[in-house]
Nucleic acid binder design. Sequence first.
DNA 1: ATTGCTGCAAAACGTTTGCACCTAT
DNA 2: ATAGGTGCAAACGTTTTGCAGCAAT
Lengths: 154, 154
Amino acid sequence: MKDNKKAHDIFTKFLKNGKNRITPERFQVLDVALEMEEHFGADELYLQIKMNKINVSRATVYNTLELLVQCKLLVKRNFGDNIAKYESCFERKRHDHLVCTDCGKIFEFTDTDIYPIIDKICTESNFEFNNYSFNIFGKCKDKSNCTKQNENLD
Amino acid sequence: MKDNKKAHDIFTKFLKNGKNRITPERFQVLDVALEMEEHFGADELYLQIKMNKINVSRATVYNTLELLVQCKLLVKRNFGDNIAKYESCFERKRHDHLVCTDCGKIFEFTDTDIYPIIDKICTESNFEFNNYSFNIFGKCKDKSNCTKQNENLD
DNA sequence: ATTGCTGCAAAACGTTTGCACCTAT
DNA sequence: ATAGGTGCAAACGTTTTGCAGCAAT
C-alpha cells in the first residue's frame, strides 16, 4: 500500500471543516480509489470494493467520491461517454487528455500554456476559477498502436 | 422559421455520401434541433418534437443526432452532469464555456489562443485532430447575476 | 441524545436494443 | 426487391432516493 497518510490527513481536515463525520467507510473508499488504475467509474470502484470483501454500499461510494472531489484528492472527468470518471490527483501533476475516437485509448499530456488563457478568461468574465476540463478528440495516427475497437469505421 | 435550406443541403450531401437514406424524419429532427435553445439534451429534443405533434420516435431522434454531429451541423457537449448536450454549430462561431457551479448558468466565450496549443499537442502526439472540449468551472463573482440554486453552499 | 451516515433495495434517468413493419433506393 | 430506417416498448447501465437502523459526535 502506498503512503496514504497524507491523503487521509487532507480528507480528515476537509471532513471536520465541513461538519461531515469521520467514518471508516469513507477512508476505505479513499484507499481503494488511490489504488485504482486511472480513470475509473464510480460503479467500477464499487465492484472493486466488493471484490476486496470490504462492505461499503453503493450509496456511500457515490457520496464519498463527491466529497473526495470537493477536497481535491480526486478529479471528476468525462470523456464523452456520459459516464463520470474519477482520477486521483493526490501528489500528481495536473494534466489533460487526448481521446482516440477509433480505439478509445486515452493519452495524457501536460501543457502549461493553457493556464494564462484560463486566467485571462476568468478575469474578463469576473469568474472565480475552480476547475477546468480540456479534452482533445481525434485519432492515433500511429495505427500499430491503435487497436481500433470500432471496425465499422472508414 | 429560419433559413434551413443550407443546413438541409449539407445534411443531404452527407447522407448520400455515406449511403444513408434520405428520410423525412431525419429532416424533421434537424429542423427542430435548429430551433432549440442552446445546449439541449436528446430527450429534451424528443419531447419538443412530441409537443410539436411530429411523429418521430426516440430511437430515430438519438440516431439522427449522432448523424448531425458527424456532419458537423451539431456539436455534442458535456458540462459535467453526464447528460449529452447538443448545440447547433451551423453558421455559428466556435466557442467554449464557463459553467457556474453555484447557479448552473453557462456562459460562452471565444478565445483563439487555444488553437495553436491544440495544434502543437496533436503534432507532438501524432494525433489526427477531430474535435475538442474545453470547459471552465467556477463561480459567477457577480452574485446579483447568480441565482444560486444550491443554497446549501458556503 | 442528536443528527448525520450507512446499507439495502427500489426507483429514476438517459440511452440503447430487439423486433416487426415500412419505405427510399 | 432489398437493405436500411422506423416506431414502439422493453432492457440496460449508471446514478439517485427512501427508509429503517446505526454510529460519530
